[in-house]
Every structure is written in structure tokens, then in C-alpha cells.
């Protein structure tokens, strides 16, 4: 029981430190900018779901806001402690390392989901009825992608001393590079599965044509398979991160 109490306390502490940090202020700033863009978009004469997905959801939210929000909390949990040198206090407690990892993960995931899903809802509302309609359908893909990103970035934090830079490189460089390559290599990118799920969820709104200009390059897979991949990636990356954290020496 005392361990459970300590873990809960650590989760609460981690979440509190993440909330009251500069990255939250910056996250808010990014969200405000995106919201302004959405309001401006809603002023256009012919807003359609297809345009919302092509002009707002994919380029601004899925390609940028989503990975950045996940990155700022998922790497901050462990990488922040490593950077500040405070990880030693946690590792000196009698809490098993996998539980420390779990506490950090729980804090990061909770905040990330609140932020990504809340942000998505805000953008949808700002974009008017069309935006709200699309957003209501894409919450599940966003939730799955958030979980996968959090697992991935927190694993980076256990592996690399400069996990934030590595995560940024992955999210804004590698995913874009892989996503623009032909063939099945793009199945390594989280955003690929997120896009498939988004197109699948909004298919009834006629959004499919907002997808890639050359569908042959995109080579989509079934939505159920994409869901399964993201779920497996989330669980697998969490376990991998927990194992890595419990094995590595942090000095």
C-alpha cells in the first residue's frame, strides 16, 4: 500500500510540475495560434469537411500540434528529471523502477490526452459547425495516435540524454521523410496510421479526396489493422520503455 501511495504521489507531482511549466505556456500559445487560424478559416465562404481536413486537421494538427503536445509532456517526464539532475532522488527511493516509469507515463499520458483531445475540440469549435462535425469523428484516431506518441517519446527519454531533440527530429523530420517515400516504408510512421483512421472515420463526409494526391503512393491499410497496430505499438512501447528504464544506469 505504501508503494501505491508513493506512486500516486509521484504521478501527481510529475503532472503538477508538467502543468506549471513553460512548455504548458508555449503549448497554450501554439493552441491559440492554431485557434486563430481556425477562426479565420471558418470565415471563408465555402467551408467543407474535406477542406477542414486538408487545410487544418492534417497540416496543422496531425503534422504539428499533436506530436509537439505529446513530445512536450512525454519527454519532459523523464528527460526533464535527467536534465535537471533530480532523477537521482527518485532512483534513491525504494520504488521499483518500472513503477517510477509507470508514474511518469501515467502523468504524461493523462496530460497529453487532456491537451490533445481538448485542443482538438477547441479547434473544431473555432472552425464552426463543419469543424465540430469532423472533430467529433476523429477523436478516436487522435487518442490512439497520442498514446503511441507518448509511448514512443517516453521510450526515447529513457534511451537518449537529449531525447527532446531526437523526438523532434523523429516527429518533424523522419515522419515527414518516411511519409513521402514510396512503398511500405511509411508504415513505420505513427502519423500514417493516424491519417488512415482519420480518412476512414470521415469517409461518410466525403473527406477521402482530401488525402494524398497520389493514392498509389499512400498504399493505405484497413482501419481495423491501423487500430491494432497503434494499440500494439502503445503497449509495446510502454513495456519497452519500462524495461529500458529499469535496466539502464542514469548518472
Amino acid at each position: 500500500m505504501s508503494s501505491l501511495y508513493a506512486i500516486l504521489h509521484l504521478t501527481f507531482l510529475s503532472a503538477r510540475r508538467m502543468i506549471w511549466s513553460r512548455q504548458t505556456v508555449l503549448n497554450l500559445l501554439l493552441l491559440v495560434l492554431a485557434t486563430v487560424a481556425c477562426i479565420a478559416w471558418s470565415l471563408r465562404e465555402d467551408p467543407t469537411p474535406e477542406r477542414f481536413v486538408a487545410q487544418i486537421l492534417l497540416p496543422i494538427y496531425v503534422a504539428f500540434l499533436l506530436p509537439i503536445s505529446c513530445l512536450c509532456y512525454a519527454t519532459a517526464g523523464i528527460a526533464g528529471d535527467r536534465e535537471e539532475g533530480t532523477l537521482v532522488y527518485l532512483l534513491a527511493t525504494p520504488l521499483p523502477r518500472p513503477l517510477i516509469y509507470l508514474a511518469k507515463y501515467a502523468a504524461a499520458l493523462t496530460l497529453t490526452l487532456i491537451w490533445t483531445l481538448g485542443g482538438l475540440r477547441l479547434l473544431g469549435q473555432a472552425a464552426g459547425p463543419v469543424g465540430a462535425q469532423v472533430v467529433a469523428l476523429v477523436s478516436w484516431p487522435v487518442l490512439l495516435a497520442s498514446c503511441a506518441y507518448v509511448g514512443l517519446f517516453q521510450w526515447f527519454a529513457t534511451l537518449f540524454s537529449r531525447a527532446t531533440i531526437v523526438a523532434l527530429g523523429y516527429a518533424l523530420f523522419l515522419e515527414v521523410l518516411i511519409g513521402s517515400m514510396p512503398g511500405i516504408v511509411k508504415r513505420l510512421a505513427v502519423s500514417f496510421y493516424a491519417q488512415i483512421l482519420i480518412f476512414d472515420a470521415t469517409g461518410d463526409l466525403g473527406v477521402a479526396s482530401a488525402g494524398p494526391h497520389n493514392p498509389a503512393m499512400f498504399l493505405p491499410i484497413a482501419a481495423s489493422a491501423a487500430t491494432l497496430v497503434l494499440l500494439i505499438a502503445t503497449v509495446g512501447l510502454f513495456l519497452l520503455g519500462g524495461w529500458t528504464f529499469s535496466q539502464r544506469e542514469y548518472v
Binding site: 501511495y5 504521489h9 507531482l13 532522488y89 525504494p94
Partner: peptide, 23 residues
């Protein structure tokens, strides 16, 4: 190493460590 959760008070910090030790 001179590392702390700098924004915390000394009292809160010691109490935090006590709680992480299961108190």
C-alpha cells in the same frame, strides 16, 4: 550534485521524499 526541484520549498521537498519512501 546540487540538483533540486528548485521551485519547491525546502519543507515541501523533504516531505515529498518522505512520501516517496512510503510515509
Amino acid at each position: 550534485a546540487d540538483a533540486f526541484y528548485e521551485e519547491m520549498s525546502g519543507r515541501a521537498f523533504v516531505r515529498l521524499i518522505a512520501r516517496l519512501h512510503g510515509l
